[in-house]
Nucleic acid binder design. Structure first.
Lengths: 200, 200
DNA sequence: TGTTTTTTTTACCATTTGGTCAAAGCAAGG
DNA sequence: CCTTGCTTTGACCAAATGGTAAAAAAAACA
């Protein structure tokens, strides 16, 4: 076998799924291999048969998530209607906060601590994409199709407002009116916010 | 002595200052008593002479910060001009992100992990203040002095956008145009954002 | 079925870490 | 100087934790 058998694939993804659970809840240092292994339904030495160590699990998990995470921004389409493109982007980001809160918190945890295990990765893929899209936003502003403002801060504000609902879920849940769908009302609020902000 | 001598006060605050450094950078589990003690210029047993344990240091640190942290929201004045009050609040929050990024990241870390050591505290002080201020915002909206929207999400969005600059500093720094004052431009961007959003 | 290869487990190790303890240092009053 | 009470430290401990080694178990193959 070449190390990619069906069993291997199944176990590797079971480990990564378990690692997402555990790392996102306790952070890198707070998570233990025993916890992850147990959540993946195997023993610690067995987990270490599939990954060379704790950090390797964490790093691969992060790397596999970056793509998924940046996809909505990648889809911001230069040929579409500016306002609709941005509204769609915001809607997708809120949806991701709802459907993948663990992934969001995993990133948040890593970045809050200074991204010690993601530094180079961030500065490549992410920076390239960020520069491309801020340039696009600038162009739209130059053409008068959306209101003029700092495009970098515009993206920051979208990230902040949308990811907040996943990253600070504990606080949100505590403070929100019970009985309402937080993500539904958040989507409406943010849609209105960005329409008001961006309409020239 | 009654346990509050000058030496005691000096050492306790040295410990808390060191703990802020270390906890905000590595999280609760990632920080070690040795690190904190060493940063405070003393030995670990000496630190444990002043605090009963690691968690006690962490909890007291958090409790002492909550007050400082909520102060700007407390100052939202029912008798002031609504728009100016909110602009002042946003400006103060940005300023706090700039001047107390460690405090911000300490909270972020705790909340991202589900606030396991702050639950009850949050649900009391914070919730009470939050409800009071959303009621105030609602009143202002009823009176037609600011645009109508969900007041809870309005506060969430202010927290998200302002604290983002402290909590995600690593990312912000990596992506921002070098040579510009991030906090200065952020303050301008957010001022403009909330003026546009809130003007009836 | 017998052999080889992959997978899993049991037992273990070294280090880290939160915390204890008893002894030593030290300031203040007598 | 000597006692008394507060402060600091060096030595130590038990538990947790990342990781290893070798053998058992299970598949895969011939």
């Amino acid at each position: 076998m070449d190390g990619n058998s069906r069993v291997q694939k199944r176990n590797r993804s079971a480990i990564l799924a378990a690692a997402l659970d555990v790392f996102s809840q306790h952070g890198y240092r707070g998570a233990t291999l025993d916890q992850i292994a147990s959540a993946a339904g195997m023993s610690k030495p067995n987990l270490l048969y599939y990954f060379p160590g704790k950090e390797a699990v964490f790093v691969q998990l992060l790397h596999e998530l970056v793509d998924k995470w940046l996809e909505p921004l990648r889809q911001l389409n230069a040929d579409g209607d500016p306002l609709e493109e941005i509204r769609t982007y915001v809607r997708r980001k809120v949806q991701m906060s709802q459907e993948m809160p663990q992934e969001s918190r995993l990133f948040a945890n890593e970045i809050v601590q200074g991204a010690p295990r993601m530094g180079t990765y961030l500065s490549q893929d992410l920076k390239e994409l960020f520069d491309e899209k801020t340039a696009l936003l600038s162009k739209w502003m130059d053409e008068g199709r959306i209101a003029r403002m700092d495009p970098q801060h515009l993206i920051f504000s979208i990230w902040a407002t949308t990811q907040h609902y996943a990253d600070f879920e504990a606080q949100i849940h505590l403070l929100s009116d019970p009985g309402t769908d937080v993500f539904q009302s958040a989507a409406e609020f943010l849609d209105n916010l960005y329409v008001r902000l961006l309409t020239p």
